[in-house]
Structures are given as structure tokens and as C-alpha cells.
Amino acid sequence: MPATQPIPDSSRYQSTRLKALSLFASRGFSTVSMRDLAKHLGIQPGSLYNHIESKEALLFELIEELYEQLLHGARQMQRRAATPAEQLHGLLEAHLRLHASMAAHFRLAEYDSHCLASEQQAHIHELRARYTQLLVECVEQLTGQPAGNSRRAALNGIVALLNQLPAWVEAPEMSPTARHALLRDMVLSALGGALRAPQD
């Protein structure tokens, strides 16, 4: 499914996207009406469609953007890493770093994807499956054995953990570096458990 086409005047559209993203993430997509969105953007409700195609199309675009960024970062790690272990650790690090810069996107992806049309949901599911497969391939190269159904299920859970964990761990007394290290250690601990679990 092709990405939603941006409305002309890209600078204005990018500003609209960022404001809408902030509102959707703070209040939840389903609670934001078109009138709420128009008010937040500082425009009349009747002119909203001059700025966006639709509320749902914008949500789809934002979630799609997140998974495209995740896939891009994972593929870069594949090219750069010298060993399977470096590749796996690089993928996890890239995911956590992206969460730091796209936290609102992750919020929408995890909690509001169900608001998308079925075709849009299917496309997002496909992107997530592609990303999970890259993680599976990293683990298979590291262990030297194909991943069975139980390990694939566990790795799918690791992706969900990566998507949600940074929002769960509130540690204002910690430095950003220390918090990142804590998140990485928690993910690696969960990953270690997944790797120790018996195969099918």
C-alpha cells in the first residue's frame, strides 16, 4: 500500500503533522474529534481538509513513518556490523535511540493502530513483521540455528517490549545515559530469556 501523499506546501504540512502528532499522543487518537484537531491547529473546522486528507490518513502516515525508520535503522546495522552479536546489539540500540526521538510515534503505533482501516492495519502489520524478521535473522545468525515457532513468538514479544518499555520506565533522577543503559539491560535480559527457552 503506498504511503499517503503529502498535501502541497510541505513546510506547512510538516508543521500540521507535528501538532497533530502531539495532540493524538497526549489525548489518544480516538478521543480527538475533527473540531478538536482544527482548534489545536488554529484553523476553522471547515478548512481542515485543506490541511490534511483525513484524520485516519494522518494516523496511518505517522505509524508507517515509524516502521519505515525502524526498518531503515535495522538495515543500516546489518551493513555495518562485523559479527552477529554486534548486529543484534546494534539493532537493539538503534531501536531504543529511535524511541528517544519518536516517542509520540511509538505511542500511536502501540495504542491507536486499531483505529486504522483494515487495509491500513494490514500494511502496518506487514511492516512490523518485516522488522521482526530482521530480529529473527540476527538471532539465527548468532545461535547458528533456525528459530522455531516458540522463539519467533518470544522475539515478537521483544519487539513489543522495545516499543513500550521506554514509556514504562520513568526515572527522572537518572541521567539519559544511565536510563538508556538500564533500558538496554532490561531488553537484553528479556532477550536472554527468549534465547534460553527450549525450541519447538
Rank of each mutant, 00 (worst) to 15 (best):
residue 23 L to V: 14
residue 77 M to N: 14
residue 64 E to P: 05
residue 21 L to I: 07
residue 59 L to S: 09
residue 25 A to H: 05
residue 119 E to S: 12
residue 111 Y to P: 00
residue 110 E to D: 08
residue 84 P to E: 01
residue 20 A to H: 04
residue 83 T to L: 04
residue 72 H to I: 05
residue 86 E to F: 03
residue 45 P to I: 06
residue 21 L to N: 04
residue 31 T to I: 08
residue 79 R to M: 09
residue 28 G to S: 05
residue 35 R to P: 00
residue 55 K to I: 02
residue 26 S to A: 14
residue 46 G to L: 04
residue 98 L to G: 00
residue 118 S to G: 00
residue 113 S to D: 05
residue 24 F to W: 03
residue 45 P to A: 11
residue 107 R to W: 01
residue 63 I to L: 10
residue 89 H to I: 11
residue 17 R to C: 15
residue 45 P to E: 09
residue 73 G to E: 14
residue 82 A to T: 10
residue 73 G to F: 02
residue 123 H to M: 08
residue 86 E to Q: 15
residue 24 F to D: 01
residue 83 T to V: 03
residue 107 R to M: 07
residue 20 A to K: 02
residue 31 T to Q: 12
residue 35 R to I: 13
residue 52 I to T: 06
residue 54 S to Y: 07
residue 107 R to L: 06
residue 25 A to R: 00
residue 35 R to M: 06
residue 25 A to K: 02
residue 90 G to S: 11
residue 42 G to T: 08
residue 94 A to I: 01
residue 18 L to W: 08
residue 116 L to F: 03
residue 45 P to C: 10
residue 37 L to T: 09
residue 97 R to W: 02
residue 84 P to L: 01
residue 122 A to C: 04
residue 47 S to R: 12
residue 49 Y to K: 12
residue 52 I to R: 05
residue 38 A to F: 09
residue 26 S to G: 01
residue 89 H to F: 12
residue 27 R to Y: 08
residue 107 R to D: 05
residue 108 L to I: 04
residue 57 A to V: 02
residue 51 H to W: 04
residue 72 H to Q: 14
residue 78 Q to E: 15
residue 113 S to P: 00
residue 103 A to D: 11
residue 104 A to V: 00
residue 123 H to V: 05
residue 114 H to D: 13
residue 120 Q to H: 07
residue 49 Y to C: 10
residue 42 G to P: 04
residue 75 R to T: 09
residue 104 A to R: 14
residue 107 R to G: 00
residue 122 A to Q: 14
residue 111 Y to F: 13
residue 79 R to Q: 13
residue 77 M to E: 15
residue 80 R to I: 10
residue 94 A to G: 03
residue 104 A to F: 07
residue 105 H to M: 03
residue 51 H to M: 04
residue 58 L to E: 10
residue 17 R to N: 12
residue 55 K to H: 01
